[in-house]
Nucleic acid binder design. Structure first.
Lengths: 145, 145
DNA sequence: TATGTATTGCAATTATGTTGCAATTTGATT
DNA sequence: AATCAAATTGCAACATAATTGCAATACATA
């Protein structure tokens, strides 16, 4: 996490008389690149680090403060840091090694959203776009067919 | 679910000596429009209808047979019916009433995927695109700000 | 450093997801 | 239509994930 992000985080927390603690820094970092394995690992056991309960509670707090929002996809949800912390972007996600490649926002996507929103008289607030497939490295190995 | 879908489903199941049962029809329909509330409700309790366990098991079976696939978004996953059953499309999802509006696939999205994939030497397999916001009806009511 | 508030961790609870096994349903065959 | 083997389901028990209450700790500031 960048110093700038940390300052922003501190500022938003301060508004509600909340402290920027180690646990909250950790929680924030989890949300920057929420990778299935690492997060499950942290949430599954009481690692010597920070208690699972604290992570859950800080996620809730972040949501109240608008630091993250919850986006339903199917009947699960994903948590997404608000644009103020992570400029909006998209992901290429490798099905094999689970690596995530960040890609910049694209005008064509924004235009698409504008078009269909007008069509359905819909007021867009957030969007999520993710491409799964095989990264450069994993295409070389077997199993990427 | 359409008759055509039902026939397809039956055919895929038959290949593996599986039967098209009431429970499997129900499971399939859940996946057509997987809305958070209704699915949670069905999976949470043993409603007089079909047992939770059966739903879970049929989802697993569907996955093995390629009827649905699992797509990770953040540290949760979503289940998506394969294109053969539901032509690939995207969603406008209302944050207020949770209504889902289907939108057709768009060339501009496909082009975008092609472009960034080339850029990162990435082999795309699936993608997920979802816009959250407020539908026509809910914009009229309060709370949609 | 003393004080009131925010934060955390632990233990207990609830909700979600999985497994083993016996009972039921299916459709294929006689 | 009765029988049979295989597939499917439901129940109960279990495992894991998420939430809540409460007491202990850390924090900001006076």
């Amino acid at each position: 996490m960048t110093d700038e992000q940390q300052e922003q985080l501190k500022a938003v927390l301060a508004k509600g008389n909340h402290h920027l603690t180690q646990a909250r820094l950790k929680t924030f970092e989890l949300l920057v690149h929420p990778e299935p394995q690492s997060i499950r690992e942290i949430l599954s056991k009481n690692n010597g680090d920070i208690d699972r309960v604290t992570i859950y509670r800080n996620i809730d707090l972040f949501e109240k403060l608008g630091i993250v929002h919850r986006l339903y996809v199917g009947w699960k949800f994903k948590l997404e840091l608000s644009d103020q912390f992570i400029p909006h972007h998209h992901h290429l996600s490798c099905l094999q090694c689970q690596k995530i490649i960040d890609i910049e926002g694209e005008q064509s996507i924004d235009e698409f959203i504008k078009k269909v929103s007008a069509q359905f008289n819909f007021l867009p607030q957030q969007h999520h776009f993710e491409v799964s497939g095989y990264c450069h490295d994993c295409q070389a190995k077997e199993g990427s067919t």
